[in-house]
Simulated scan of single mutants.
Amino acid sequence: MGFVRTVDGDIDPAEMGVTYAHDHIYCIPALWKEKGDVDLLLDSPEASQAELALFAKAGGRTIYDATAIDYGRDVGTVKRIAKAAGVQVIATAGFNKAIMWPGTMPGTGMTFAQWIGAKSRAELARHVVAEVTEGMDGTDIKGGVVKFGTGYNTMSEAEIKVLLAVLDAHKQTGAPIHSHTELGTMALEQLELVRQEGVDPARLTIAHLDRNPDGWLHRKVADSGAFFSFDGITRVKYYPEDVRTRCILDLVRHGHEDQVLVGGDIARRTMFASYGEGGLGMGYILEKWVPRFIEEAGEAGFDGPALVHKFLVENPQRAFAFSS
C-alpha cells in the first residue's frame, strides 16, 4: 500500500484513523456566489473550524474534502483551520461537474465551460497532474485525489474530456480517483470509460450511489471492484435512513464489505451545526448514525462494530492510497 497525500504532506495510510470519505469544509463556489445562493456558501473559517472540532471530538481523524476548483476550493484556508482543529484533510485535484461550469474560473476571466472548452485532453491532464505534484490555488499544497463528475443521466462531451484527462492524470501520478454521480446515475457508464482506458476500477471511489438505492446497480458496480461512498446520510427527503442501511448490508451479503466508505457530503450552511442554522453537523455520523447502524446490522445478524471499523478505518486506507 502506498502513501496518502494530505494538505500537510504525505502520511502512511495507517495514520488516517477514523475517516469520512466525502465532505466539504470551507468553499465558496463561483456559480452559487454569482447566483446568490447563500446556503451553499461555506464562507466562515471560524464556523468551518468549529465543525472540524466537532468531528475530532467525536473521534474523527481524517476527512476527504471533495471540493474541486469549480466548487470554490480554498486549500490554504482549509489547511489552516484543519491544523487548528487537529484534523487531517485530503484535498481534491481535478473537477466536479458541468452544472458548475457557468461559474468563473479563478484568475482567467473565463467561465469554467469556456476554459475547459479551450483546453485539449492533454492540457487538462497536465493541469490536474500539476495540482497533485506542484500545488493548488497558488500554493504548494498538493491534491491527494483526482476527481471527475457527470450529470443526471447525462455525460456531456466536455465532461467526457475531463474524465479522460483525470484518468490520464491518475496514470501519471498514481493518485486515487473520485467521481461525482448526479443522484447516483451514470456509474456504469463511467466504469465503461474507466475500463476502456485501462484503469483499474479498484482505484476509483464513486460518490452518491446511495441517492439511487438500486440493489442491482450497486451489485454491478461492486463487481467492478470500485469503492462506494455512502455519503447521503441524514437526507431523509430522498428516503428513510433504513433504506441506506439495507443497501450497505446487501453489499456485505454479496461479499463487498471491503468497498464501502462513509461520509456526510455536508455542503450547506443548514447542514452544519456551527453556521447558526441548527444543522446536525460533522459529529452526527460518528455520534448518531454509527450506533444506529450497529444496532440495525446486529438485528440483521452482522457484526456491526467490525463493519463500522472496516467502513471508517480499514477501507479508506486502501481507497485513498497512491499506487506505484
Results as ranks from 00 to 15, higher is better:
V4M: 05
T6P: 00
P13F: 10
E15L: 11
H24S: 06
I25S: 06
I28G: 07
L31Y: 15
D37E: 15
E46L: 12
Q49I: 03
L54E: 15
F55Y: 15
K57L: 05
D65G: 08
A66R: 03
Y71W: 13
Y71G: 01
G72W: 07
R73W: 05
G76Y: 03
K79E: 09
I81H: 05
I81T: 05
A82W: 02
K83H: 14
K83Q: 15
K97N: 12
I99S: 15
T108Q: 09
M110R: 13
W115C: 07
A118Q: 12
R121H: 05
A122P: 00
A122G: 10
L124N: 04
M136P: 11
D137R: 04
G138E: 03
D140Q: 04
G144L: 05
F148Y: 12
T150A: 13
T154V: 12
M155V: 13
S156K: 12
A158F: 14
I160S: 07
I160L: 15
V162D: 02
V166K: 00
V166S: 13
H170K: 12
A175S: 12
Q190Y: 07
L191F: 10
L191Y: 08
E192N: 13
L193M: 14
V194W: 06
V194Y: 08
P201Y: 07
T205F: 02
I206W: 05
R211P: 01
N212P: 02
P213W: 02
H218W: 10
R219V: 11
K220S: 12
S229D: 15
E241H: 08
T245M: 13
T245L: 07
V252C: 14
V252R: 11
H254V: 13
L261F: 07
V262W: 15
G263D: 04
A267K: 02
R269S: 09
A273S: 15
A273P: 04
Y275N: 03
L280M: 01
L280W: 02
G283M: 00
L286A: 02
L286D: 09
K288S: 11
W289I: 06
V290H: 01
V290E: 04
P291K: 12
P291E: 09
R292E: 13
F293G: 01
D303N: 15
G304E: 11
L307Y: 13
H309F: 06
F311N: 04
F311H: 09
L312E: 03
L312W: 07
S323I: 05
S323G: 13
S324K: 15
